[in-house]
Measured scan of single mutants.
Amino acid sequence: DTCAICRVQVMDACLRCQAENKQEDCVVVWGECNHSFHNCCMSLWVKQNNRCPLCQ
């Protein structure tokens, strides 16, 4: 699966965690819609949006 926000494989660290060298801290979360995201990506997304980027 791919993170619906950053488009990186969810089993890999997101771009932000890769840049900050925090790959082991990058975890996967699932929305109520069952789409998967990196927690970092979702945390930033929900500050500006309240819907899944794929379900909009």
Rank of each mutant, 00 (worst) to 15 (best):
P53F: 03
K47L: 04
W45A: 14
M42Q: 08
C3L: 00
F37Y: 10
N39G: 13
I5R: 09
C3D: 00
R51E: 10
K22E: 06
E32T: 09
C6E: 03
C33G: 02
A13Y: 03
R7I: 00
D1V: 08
V28G: 07
W30M: 15
L15R: 13
C26L: 04
Q9D: 01
C14K: 03
P53I: 04
M11R: 07
S36A: 13
G31T: 10
P53R: 05
Q23Y: 06
Q18V: 10
M11K: 15
S43P: 15
F37W: 06
V46L: 12
D12E: 12
A4R: 10
N34G: 14
C40A: 03
Q18Y: 06
C41A: 00
C17E: 02
Q48R: 13
Q48E: 10
V10H: 11
M42T: 07
C41E: 06
A19K: 04
N21A: 09
S36H: 06
I5Y: 14
W30P: 14
C26R: 10
A19S: 08
N50V: 12
K47I: 05
C3R: 00
C14A: 02
C17G: 01
L44Q: 05
N21C: 06
L15E: 05
T2I: 13
K47A: 09
N21E: 12
C6R: 01
S43M: 06
H38N: 03
E20I: 07
V28P: 04
W30T: 14
Q23P: 07
N21I: 02
A19W: 03
E24G: 12
P53L: 07
C52F: 00
C17T: 00
M11F: 14
A19L: 08
A13K: 15
L54T: 15
C17Y: 00
R7E: 15
Q56D: 06
W30I: 13
R51A: 12
C33K: 00
F37P: 04
W30E: 15
C3I: 13
D1F: 04
L15Q: 14
V10I: 10
L44N: 09
D1R: 01
K47D: 09
C6Y: 00
Q9M: 10
V28M: 15
C6P: 00
L54D: 15
W30H: 15
Q48I: 15
V29H: 11
Q56S: 06
S36T: 08
L15G: 14
A4G: 13
E32F: 03
E24S: 13
C41H: 04
E24Q: 09
P53S: 04
Q56E: 13
F37H: 04
H38E: 01
V28R: 14
L54I: 15
V28C: 01
V29C: 11
M42F: 13
N39V: 08
C41W: 00
N50M: 07
N50L: 08
M11H: 14
C17S: 07
N21G: 11
D25Q: 10
I5A: 11
V10A: 09
V8R: 13
M11A: 15
C3M: 04
P53W: 03
N50C: 02
A19Y: 08
C17F: 00
D1P: 01
R16P: 08
T2A: 00
L54F: 12
D25Y: 03
Q23C: 07
K22A: 11
K22R: 07
V29Q: 15
Q18P: 13
S43C: 06
N50W: 04
G31H: 11
Q48C: 06
N34K: 15
V27K: 07
E32K: 08
A19T: 12
C52W: 07
I5L: 13
V8P: 04
C14W: 00
S43W: 02
R51M: 08
M42Y: 15
G31R: 08
W30S: 15
C55K: 04
R16M: 12
L44I: 11
N39P: 10
Q23H: 13
E32N: 07
V46Q: 13
N50P: 11
Q9T: 10
A4H: 06
V8Y: 06
P53G: 05
I5P: 01
V27Q: 05
C55F: 03
Q9F: 05
W30L: 14
K22N: 07
N49D: 13
G31P: 15
W30R: 15
E20H: 04
C6K: 01
Q18R: 10
R51F: 11
C33Y: 00
C41Q: 00
C33T: 00
A19V: 11
A13T: 08
C17L: 00
K47N: 09
Q48A: 13
G31Y: 05
S43F: 01
D25E: 13
C41D: 02
I5Q: 05
N49H: 15
E24D: 12
Q9W: 04
Q48S: 14
M11L: 09
H38R: 02
K47V: 05
D25P: 06
K22Y: 08
D12G: 14
Q9C: 09
L44P: 13
T2S: 07
A13H: 08
W45S: 13
D25I: 07
V46Y: 06
G31N: 15
M11W: 05
D25C: 07
Q23D: 06
N49E: 11
S36F: 09
Q9G: 11
C41G: 05
C14P: 02
K22L: 06
H35M: 00
N34F: 05
N50T: 07
G31I: 00
N49M: 08
N21T: 11
W30N: 14
K47H: 05
N50I: 07
H38G: 01
N39Y: 04
L54N: 12
E20R: 08
I5G: 07
V27I: 08
Q18L: 08
V29P: 12
L54W: 05
H38Q: 00
C3F: 00
V29M: 11
S43I: 04
V10Q: 08
K47S: 09
F37G: 04
E20A: 11
A4K: 12
S43V: 10
T2E: 02
N34I: 09
S36M: 11
P53K: 03
Q48N: 07
D1Y: 05
E24L: 04
